[in-house]
Computed example of a mutant assay.
Amino acid sequence: MPQIEQLAATYGSQIFWLLVTFGIVYLVIGRGMARKVVGTVELRDRTVAEDLSSAEAARASADQAEEQWRAQENAAREQAKRKLAEARAAGAKASEQRLGAANAELDAKVSEAEARIAAAQQAALTEIGAVAADAARDIVRRVAETEVEEAEARKAVEKVLHG
């Protein structure tokens, strides 16, 4: 076979050119491009490290801001509780004053009504006595056919009513 014979004749030169080609590729890629790739990787690592450190600083700042916010919120909540307690106390005091005034007014009205009731009761008793005396005079006139003085009739009625 002629192809195999030809292979043996060109075998040495093919190996030579193979080594030359690999050498050139090694020099171009290994010496030139590898440095750029390593530089890019190092730059990326530095960028990632810087981003992580800035993220950590931002997280610390956010934590501090959250603490300040919570402290302000707690202070505002305490202030609101104090104001609510003050408002409740003021409302209770105002209610007590209004209730006291209303109770005093009601007590005055009750006393006045009791006085009117007592006067009306006294007037009714007096009137009952007068009506009873008139009725007694009328009964005596019809039954005994005699006239009784009004004063005597009143005295008799008073004696019966008051024992």
Rank of each mutant, 00 (worst) to 15 (best):
E145G: 03
A57R: 13
K83S: 14
V131A: 13
A104L: 08
E78K: 06
A62Q: 01
K36D: 07
R46I: 07
I29H: 07
Q79K: 11
A89N: 03
A120H: 11
A60F: 05
L106H: 14
A55S: 11
T47Q: 14
V38C: 01
A62L: 05
S54V: 12
A62T: 04
G100H: 14
T126L: 09
L18A: 15
A34E: 05
A123K: 15
V28Q: 02
S111D: 10
T40K: 08
D63W: 00
G100M: 09
V110Y: 12
A102K: 10
A113V: 04
V148I: 03
L27T: 05
A133I: 00
L125D: 15
V37E: 01
L18W: 12
A34Y: 08
A75N: 02
V41Y: 00
D51A: 15
A58D: 08
A108Q: 14
E127W: 03
R31S: 10
T47N: 12
V20G: 01
A101W: 03
V110N: 08
I117W: 09
A87F: 11
I15M: 10
R116V: 02
Y26Q: 09
Q64I: 04
T40H: 12
Q72W: 06
A118W: 03
Q122F: 11
V143S: 00
Q121T: 15
F16W: 09
R70I: 04
A130C: 02
T21F: 14
G129H: 08
Q68P: 03
G129M: 00
Q64N: 06
E67K: 12
Y26H: 10
T21S: 14
K83F: 04
A34M: 13
Q121L: 11
R70S: 02
E86K: 10
S54K: 13
A76S: 08
A55L: 11
R137A: 04
A92K: 10
E78M: 05
G129E: 10
S54P: 01
A49K: 12
A130F: 06
A76F: 06
I15A: 12
A62Y: 09
A102P: 02
R70P: 00
S61Q: 14
A133H: 02
A75T: 03
L84P: 07
A123R: 15
S53I: 07
V140M: 02
L125T: 12
E105G: 09
V25W: 04
E114T: 07
D138I: 06
R59S: 14
K83V: 10
L43Q: 13
V131D: 04
E96A: 15
L43Y: 10
A34N: 12
I15S: 08
V131N: 13
V148N: 00
K93S: 10
E67R: 14
A130D: 11
V37K: 05
E145K: 12
R142G: 02
G30H: 00
R137I: 01
V20R: 03
R59C: 08
G91T: 05
A108C: 00
A75L: 05
A124K: 08
V20M: 01
A135D: 05
L52M: 13
D107F: 04
I15D: 07
L99I: 06
R116K: 13
A115S: 12
M33F: 15
K81Y: 11
V143I: 05
Q122A: 15
A135I: 02
V37S: 05
R88H: 14
D138G: 08
E105F: 07
L125Y: 06
E112R: 12
